[in-house]
């Protein structure tokens, strides 16, 4: 097992984790489809799905981390996040993708493809942000 100080992903990305959609339906994390997220957001009063396009992927100074720059929403606002290279993002029409899918598969057993510049990821914002 990794030392306690090693950063790790939250448990819900592990293959077999049970996810509850907004309508109450239960699905395994590896079985989720784009429509599940879209329909859940439609039901939600607070959350809205945004398209976030990957614009850049850079390695971080922190080992095992990457810096991903997204263009978020219709205004293509620039947002950068620093995440573990195995952190999975859900790509529209494709499924789970990460900077290092081999590591994601190894650590989480989650089937995953390589996240690339140009991929459009599902992200969330609050509906009444203004």
């Amino acid at each position: 097992p990794p030392p306690p100080s090693a950063p790790s992903l939250p448990p819900y990305f592990t293959k077999g984790s049970i996810i509850q959609l907004a309508d109450g339906e239960l699905k395994r994390v590896e079985d989720l489809k784009t429509e599940d997220f879209i329909q859940s957001a439609e039901i939600s009063n607070e959350l809205k799905i945004d398209s976030s396009t990957v614009e850049r992927i850079d390695s971080s100074h922190t080992p095992n981390f990457a810096i991903i720059q997204f263009a978020v929403g219709e205004h293509r606002s620039q947002v950068s996040v620093e995440v573990l290279v195995e952190y999975p993002f859900f790509v529209f029409g494709q499924g789970w993708s990460s900077c290092c899918p081999e590591r994601t598969s190894q650590l989480l057993e989650l089937p995953c493809t390589k996240l690339s510049v140009g991929d459009v990821c599902i992200s969330l914002t609050l509906k009444n942000l203004r």
Binding site: F13, L32, V79
Partner: peptide
Amino acid sequence: NVEPRSVPVFPWHSLVPFLAPTQSD
């Protein structure tokens, strides 16, 4: 007898990152 372990259920939105751009008002 072994009590059945409760399986954790996670809400769908915990899987999706919040990428809220900074509001420029």
